[in-house]
Nucleic acid binder design. Structure first.
Lengths: 215, 215
DNA sequence: GCCTGGCTAGAACGATCTATCAAGAGTGGC
DNA sequence: GCCACTCTTGATAGATCGTTCTAGCCAGGC
């Protein structure tokens, strides 16, 4: 949708900017901790500490407490993450090169931050899928948005039903690759996922005989 | 490796058999809770309750406490899960049909247990990747075993380097599909992952000109 | 009959968790 | 200069966490 300049992206889940107000400092700190340690593994006290904010301020800005903070985090970083990926895809004209490039960039970033940050939603999604219905729905909504966004992107090159499967495969490979990469401390899975996506896109293109689009 | 009969498999993460001793009851209860709620989200008191075991027995059988219980769970259910998948793959002779069938079976099972149980390792792996080094290593070891096992299976049909990428893709798609399936309460992702794996295996077969094996 | 060991059973401890509360600090309107 | 309001603070409550500990139960060997 929005421009997605071919420049390098700002690090998602970074610390809050220097002079940021308390609310955004809390948001950033919570996003990092939730993404790395999950819902149950993150303590609000540590959020306050990391944010250099008074403990009570969490409840001032997020009266719903931990749940509200977590839902805000899911619904905020989810679209940001999609925008980041779509931006990476935009950096190459050829769709096969684009997906390979996107995964390679993700691999570089994973190494750069010492395998700490993967997908900001996955850890929490698995954590709460069975225990916290509102958060499960929030994560489900995010995944649905990703699927729509990905389908739209691939639809520029292949038929819509094929595009949907490609988008689904891209999301699943991304999540699986981050899981393996973070656990084994190895960027290899992300690069392999890129190769795999390249193969899939090429297959879909080959099966789309009449020109690039078939809308 | 082992036989892998084409019969239906016993449910992984099931309750302990009726007359099971306390140790195995604790193991089963812990496996279920850890898989569904993650490491931080699982309380030992609830493990004892679910296992119908006295609380102190947990420390009697697992002197290492929560960590020992979790590591035992990872290293036990990990290989079981691989055996289950390899067994499903064995139920179809054609490799393309085999992968599609395996994912379709997984989809059925996910629906059957109300989207509660996915991969027994993934939830914990993401939970502890940044906070608990021994458990992270245990999960990493399990993933490495899966990769070896999967590579061996695909090597029966394609060249070894191609087989490795296929195995990697299969693991990543499985994990991603379970994540999406559990979060959105929809078996669709698992079936889509099956279709995608079918495409990938077919591609690899097409690129392996001289007969099935190329050892 | 007694003793030894594995196992049961749950109380108790200190730490940590989420959430609430009351009071203080700072700021802009009038 | 005073009020109204937003935000800051940290103490506190009540619950739950992982872990330890002590005591009792019960079967098998001698």
């Amino acid at each position: 949708m929005s421009a997605a300049t071919p420049s390098n992206h700002p690090p998602l889940l970074a610390e809050a900017p220097a002079g940021a107000d308390t609310r955004t400092r809390i948001r950033h700190a919570a996003a990092r901790l939730f993404a790395r340690r999950g819902y149950a593994g993150t303590g609000l006290k540590q959020v306050a500490t990391d944010a250099a904010a008074p403990f009570g301020s969490i409840y001032h800005f997020f009266p719903g407490g931990k749940d509200a903070l977590a839902e805000d985090m899911i619904r905020t970083t989810g679209p940001q993450f999609m925008a980041l990926v779509l931006g990476l895809l935009e950096e190459r004209a050829d769709p096969v090169e684009a997906v390979v490039h996107a995964f390679d960039s993700a691999a570089e970033e994973l190494v750069a931050d010492s395998y700490a940050d993967g997908c900001p939603v996955a850890t929490m999604a698995l954590d709460v899928a069975d225990t916290n219905e509102p958060l499960r729905r929030a994560a489900a909504d995010v995944f649905a948005e990703w699927l729509d966004g990905g389908t739209a992107w691939f639809s520029r090159h292949v038929a819509r039903d094929r595009a949907r499967d490609l988008a689904l495969a891209m999301i699943m490979l991304t999540e699986g690759a981050f899981l393996l990469g973070r656990t084994t401390r190895d960027p290899g899975p992300l690069r392999a996922a890129g190769r795999t996506m390249g193969t899939l896109v090429q297959s879909a293109l080959d099966a789309t005989p009449r020109g690039p689009r078939s809308r």
